[in-house]
């Protein structure tokens, strides 16, 4: 496995596993995350996985108990990581979950569906069909609690962001921005084209883990009616 290390300030190390967004790089990121999950140490604080990197935050003072005299905490952590990564191949048995996300497309819950259809010379039904036929992958979680960066959307429904962003996007909105699709866990401002809404909560701070989606999850969206949306606990707000 090819990787490189770099410090992020004086209490974190960034492990870079590739340069571009790619499924294989995502699997390497998940592999490193699983190593860190299975080998927690008293000096580890936490890690942040991203598209091509995993960043491990550590407590330099606690490392002093383990490090050789005069050894820099960063070098200690790097050696520790190298001992795990040298000669290791990414295992293919990383378990992937498939999460099905019901979406009520269009209407008041998806006010931009019509625009997305018109922009791509499609009917609204064709947009729904293309969006819900996709095989999606969660590359990373970031930007907001539980916000998934999702890859795999058909370019046939790609649509630029709105020229004037909305001040408030309701939570659980499903949107399109350029070639990306995503779901908003909490109310935020944003310029995404909103095509529908899911009744599922993506961020639930009282549960562990607090997010519905995790990096590496596969996603399938499926259309539901407004009545089904309400039955599944979706609100009108």
């Amino acid at each position: 496995m090819v990787y490189s290390f770099q410090p992020l300030g004086d209490n974190a190390i960034m492990i870079e596993l590739g340069k571009d967004i790619h499924i294989q790089t995502q699997q390497k990121v998940q592999f490193i995350a699983s190593i860190l999950d299975n080998h927690t140490k008293d000096w580890m604080i936490e890690y942040i996985p991203a598209f091509t990197t995993v960043t491990l935050f550590y407590d330099p003072f606690k490392i002093m108990r383990h490090a050789k005299k005069g050894e820099l905490p960063y070098n200690y952590v790097r050696s520790w990581l190298e001992s795990f990564l040298t000669g290791v191949a990414v295992e293919n048995k990383i378990t992937q979950r498939m999460i099905e996300i019901p979406v009520c497309y269009g209407g008041e819950l998806g006010p931009d569906l019509e625009f997305v259809a018109r922009h791509n010379n499609l009917s609204e039904d064709e947009v729904i069909q293309l969006h819900s036929a996709g095989d999606y992958l969660v590359y990373m979680i970031g930007f907001a609690p539980g916000f998934p960066y999702i890859g795999g959307m058909s370019e046939k429904i790609a649509t630029p962001r709105k020229e004037t962003p909305r001040l408030k996007i309701p939570p659980r909105s499903v949107g399109i921005a350029g070639k990306q699709t995503g779901v908003y866990p909490i109310e935020t401002p944003g310029g995404w084209q909103l095509i529908g809404r899911t009744p599922l909560e993506l961020f639930r701070p009282e549960k562990h883990p607090p997010t519905l989606l995790r990096p590496g999850d596969r996603i399938r969206f499926y259309p539901i009616s407004y009545e089904e949306y309400l039955e599944l606990g979706g609100d009108k707000e």
């Binding site: 992020l8 960034m14 598209f51 091509t52 960043t55």
Partner: peptide
Amino acid sequence: VSEAVSFGTIQVPSEGNPIILLADRQTT
């Protein structure tokens, strides 16, 4: 591509004015 940031990261958006990220920074 997005990657982790940290308390005290100095990042520069394309308009050229630096931003120091602090306690309530985004994760990436």
